[in-house]
């Protein structure tokens, strides 16, 4: 692998890495929202006496 090829690969891996980090952040956020929604549903049931 030449130096240019190494750098080009590195640049494309930067994008791939950024994509994976973004996906991870979104996955964490969705699971947090899901948890909050579950808590609120339980709270609403308690308030309504259901």
């Amino acid at each position: 692998m030449t130096t240019a090829e190494k750098y080009v690969t590195g640049a494309y891996l930067v994008l791939l890495g950024a994509l994976l980090v973004y996906l991870l952040i979104i996955a964490l956020k969705v699971s947090r929202l899901e948890q909050e929604l579950t808590d609120l549903t339980r709270l609403a049931r308690e308030k309504l006496g259901g």
């Binding site: 750098y7 640049a11 950024a18």
Partner: peptide, 17 residues
């Protein structure tokens, strides 16, 4: 800002070559 950071990083790599 995310894409701006990526621009700076990829631009730096291109500049190095």
């Amino acid at each position: 800002v995310i894409f701006g950071l990526l621009t700076l990083v990829t631009g730096s790599i291109w500049a190095k070559i």
